[in-house]
């Protein structure tokens, strides 16, 4: 078993784990960073969303070895206005999906800034348009909320985006 160096929230860690360990399990079970949640473990809910070099990914389908040279950011490493906006707008109830929602929203705002279109974006000329609620809902569709706090989530993100 080879030692794996992972970089999480600005710190390097050496892990003695076999290649079948997902990034999600490496974070939760081996580094004690339990802020990132496991909902489905199959890419279907978004609870495990973290940032890899600022890009949002599902840590449950990521093998830790594949992300060894990437800068991983989890909810424990985030200090962003979106967090207070979630509190102000009741963007959660039980909170289980929230760390994934926050990481996803931060990744989403960066994508939008870079001109990444979504399934509801029009022609390329329509770029630079503001994030409408419809855009936010589509771009955040990879994050489910079993409590149905979607209204608050969309409001919170909208407030920070605009």
């Amino acid at each position: 078993m080879a030692e794996l160096r992972v970089r999480v929230n600005g710190a390097d860690h050496l892990l003695d784990i076999p290649p079948q360990v997902s990034l999600l399990d490496a974070l939760r079970e081996h580094l004690g960073l339990t802020g990132t949640k496991k909902g489905c473990d199959q890419g279907a809910c978004g609870a495990c969303t973290v940032l890899a070099d600022g890009e949002r990914i599902n840590a449950c389908l990521a093998l830790a070895v594949q992300y060894a040279d990437r800068e991983i950011t989890t909810i424990e490493g985030i200090d962003h206005p979106i967090q207070e906006a979630f509190v102000r707008h009741d963007g959660f109830q039980c909170g289980y999906c929230t760390s994934g929602q926050i990481c996803s929203a931060i990744g989403m705002l960066a994508e939008h800034k870079d001109g990444m279109p979504s399934a509801v974006t029009g022609e390329p000329s329509a770029e630079g348009e503001e994030l409408t609620d419809e855009e936010i809902r589509e771009r955040m569709s990879g994050n489910l909320c079993r409590c149905g706090a979607y209204h608050g989530i969309v409001e919170a993100i909208g407030e920070v985006a605009r």
């Binding site: 890419g43 599902n58 990744g107 279109p117 979504s118 569709s141 990879g142």
Partner: peptide, 29 residues
């Protein structure tokens, strides 16, 4: 692929198909 300017202007159907699949997280991977 979905964001590439040449794909979006010459083959919009390709960009739209990708953006209609999976989630943003999965498409990044």
């Amino acid at each position: 692929l979905a964001a590439h300017p040449l794909v979006r202007t010459r083959y919009p159907v390709v960009s739209q198909a990708v953006l209609n699949g999976a989630s943003a997280q999965l498409r990044n991977m």
